[in-house]
């Protein structure tokens, strides 16, 4: 790898399809491989956010915990549901939602927040996206602490199905990388995009079964089944709450992943060389 770093070969001719494809592929591979770089940058982002505070990053745990508890008790009452059943449902749904939605929101800024670096040194663009994903994985890990007490309320969890959870987190993170490439490039070029995405995400929260159970909408099951966010949440929520491994949701997530990967690759192929000019 160091030998490659020491060689620079840039040519406008490389913008033709095949060389550009090779370069896009290299960008992804080398970006993901530069683990020490994105881990350090992402960790630094979290540290910076909470520096000088007493609890540090555990504010993440605390604030999510407070929100989940408040929502859990209030809406259990409103929906006439037993707290022991509803609270874990909201807790898991909310934590996964926060993971997915903040990856999408922060995707819009992956390149603009690293502007100074992008304009000075040559590093794979994917590296900046991995920095964002890593930062959100750290947030997720902090939020998972909330589940420890919450899981005591669940009586029929499916411990064997838990084995699928690391894979679920990985596939969501992987999606985050490619969504980050696409939205990052688009919002670097079009600065109206981040607020548009933010409002879509905000509406998405209410349209996705996080606070309400999909059974309520049984007569319009298609509405839930076509919601990609639902499947992203379900692959983590179902095993934890004793629903086994949801094969249909997994299949949908795999389809979504194939779609984001392909789009991400196409965007890198077409626009990789423009990003430094746009940021």
């Amino acid at each position: 790898m160091s030998s490659r770093l020491n060689e620079l070969n840039m040519d406008a001719q490389h913008r033709q399809f095949f060389p550009a494809l090779v370069l896009a592929w290299q960008d992804i591979r080398e970006g993901i491989a530069a683990r020490d770089k994105w881990q350090m940058l992402g960790t630094q982002d979290i540290k910076q956010r909470y520096r000088r505070s007493v609890l540090g990053p555990f504010w993440l745990t605390l604030s999510t915990g407070i929100m989940v508890a408040a929502l859990g008790f209030l809406y259990a009452e409103l929906f006439h549901q037993p707290v022991a059943e509803y609270l874990p449902f909201v807790a898991v749904g909310m934590i996964v939602w926060l993971f997915v939605s903040s990856m999408i929101n922060e995707s819009c800024f992956v390149f603009s927040e690293s502007e100074r670096m992008i304009k000075q040194i040559k590093l794979p663009l994917t590296l900046y996206v991995c920095r964002m994903v890593w930062r959100n994985i750290l947030v997720l890990l902090h939020n998972l602490v909330i589940l420890i007490p919450v899981m005591f309320l669940v009586d029929k969890t499916d411990t064997l199905a838990w084995l699928s959870l690391p894979f679920a987190v990985c596939i969501l993170a992987f999606n985050g990388i490619f969504t980050g490439i696409v939205l990052g490039i688009l919002s670097t070029r079009y600065r109206d995009l981040p607020p548009i995405i933010a409002s879509i995400i905000q509406v998405g929260f209410f349209l996705t079964p996080i606070m309400w159970k999909p059974e309520i909408l049984a007569s319009r099951a298609w509405f839930v089944k076509t919601n990609p966010f639902y499947h992203c949440i379900e692959i983590i929520r179902a095993p934890l709450l004793g629903g086994g491994i949801p094969l249909y949701s997994w299949a949908m997530v795999v389809v979504i992943t194939a779609f984001t990967d392909l789009t991400g690759l196409v965007f890198l192929l077409r626009y990789r060389h423009r990003v430094a000019y746009w940021v």
């Binding site: 020491n6 620079l8 840039m10």
Partner: peptide, 16 residues
């Protein structure tokens, strides 16, 4: 330093 892809033309470098 390699930060900007050439708009046209080329750039080759060997070494750190």
């Amino acid at each position: 330093s390699g930060a900007f892809e050439p708009s046209s033309g080329s750039l080759k470098a060997c070494g750190r």
